[in-house]
């Protein structure tokens, strides 16, 4: 952070304290203590609250409060009924819409695929941490897909999976296919989910690699001396030690799947074929924009929020429990 060096003159006089990594922490701290404590026992007592204050304030004002407004909005009508209360009318309409039900069952499918989406980056991070040959290289390139926006990832896979595209050409040379990857309602959802996993595993990888920073290397060495297999190392050392990271990746991967597959869906299938790849997020977008049903979209959003809340908290509880058992 080069900025640090350009700013010293702006800092208050006491800035000198921070200078010099050579000063040992203890001596350094000793010198400043009196001034600090006099600064107010109150400040110290409320320190935790002060630390969380900016985050809580922003989240409450700019996320939870608008959420309440949105939920409120979902009980009003669209079009001619704009602004009038319709009770649970929007929710009834949603559950009567086969398309929304498809979207919900696809959510179920994605939740089932979740362990795969977590295991892949987890294993890869483990191997990189264990320094498999070429680990530096993998660490660099595995992040490549993550920098591409979903729209371009979708556009690329659209081509690769096209009926006359390279994948079918390769399969054709083995006498298999051709398969209409994105045109067959039984296959398309898996393709989209697969591409999403491919496009985002780099992000989870980065989080896992950070998690390894807290791993006690002595444990690993001990396991190696005992002649543990890779499997055993993963199972008995790495997973328990990284339980919090795994929990985190589980929750955020779920959120990614449920709220950021829009770009992929839009480009790869547009919710089709036959509506088989609808997800709530795509449904919301469609109702809000093309269908001009903002209140109905709000109701769908509220349901999506509830689902994520329930599944997310459930995951946290489950993973916490299994972490404790270990």
């Amino acid at each position: 952070m080069p900025m640090g060096n350009t700013q010293p003159s702006v800092r208050p006089a006491s800035a000198g304290r921070a200078g010099g990594a050579a000063v040992t922490p203890a001596a350094h701290r000793h010198g400043t203590r009196p001034r600090r404590t006099r600064g107010g026992l109150g400040a110290e007592r409320y320190a935790p609250y002060i630390l969380v204050l900016p985050a809580v304030l922003i989240i409450v004002l700019l996320r939870l409060y608008p959420l309440l407004l949105g939920v409120n909005f979902s009980f009003t009508g669209d079009g001619a009924q704009n602004g009038t209360a319709v009770g649970f009318g929007n929710y009834r309409e949603l559950f009567g819409d086969p398309l929304f039900r498809t979207a919900l069952s696809n959510v179920g499918l994605l939740v089932l695929l979740l362990p795969v989406a977590v295991a892949i980056p987890g294993l890869l991070a483990t191997f990189i941490y264990l320094r498999v040959p070429g680990h530096r290289f993998y660490r660099s390139v595995y992040f490549f897909p993550a920098v591409l926006s979903p729209v371009i990832v979708g556009a690329i896979f659209n081509l690769l999976l096209a009926f006359d595209g390279p994948l079918n050409a390769v399969l054709g040379s083995f006498g298999v296919g051709p398969v209409d990857w994105l045109g067959d309602p039984d296959i398309a959802m898996f393709m989209v989910a697969g591409v999403h996993i491919w496009a985002t595993f780099g992000m989870a990888l980065v989080v896992f690699l950070a998690g390894f920073a807290t791993l006690d290397a002595a444990l690993l060495d001990a396991a190696r001396v005992d002649g543990a297999t890779l499997r055993q190392v993963v199972w008995h050392v790495i997973i328990p030690a990284l339980s919090r990271t795994i929990q985190f990746v589980f929750v955020t991967t779920m959120i990614g799947m449920l709220t950021s597959m829009f770009g992929l869906l839009f480009v790869m299938t547009s919710g089709g074929p036959e509506g088989s790849t609808y997800l709530p997020e795509f449904y919301i977008w469609k109702q809000q924009g093309q269908m001009n049903r903002p209140a109905l979209a709000s109701a769908a959003s509220t349901i999506l929020f509830m689902i994520m809340l329930v599944v997310g908290l459930l995951q946290i509880k489950l993973l916490e429990r299994s972490g404790k058992e270990d």
């Binding site: 952070m1 900025m3 060096n5 700013q7 800092r11 800035a15 921070a18």
Partner: peptide, 13 residues
């Protein structure tokens, strides 16, 4: 050094 960098960054922000 790192602290200084961070606090300066905060100031800039």
């Amino acid at each position: 050094m790192r602290q200084r960098a961070i606090w300066s960054a905060v100031l800039v922000v």
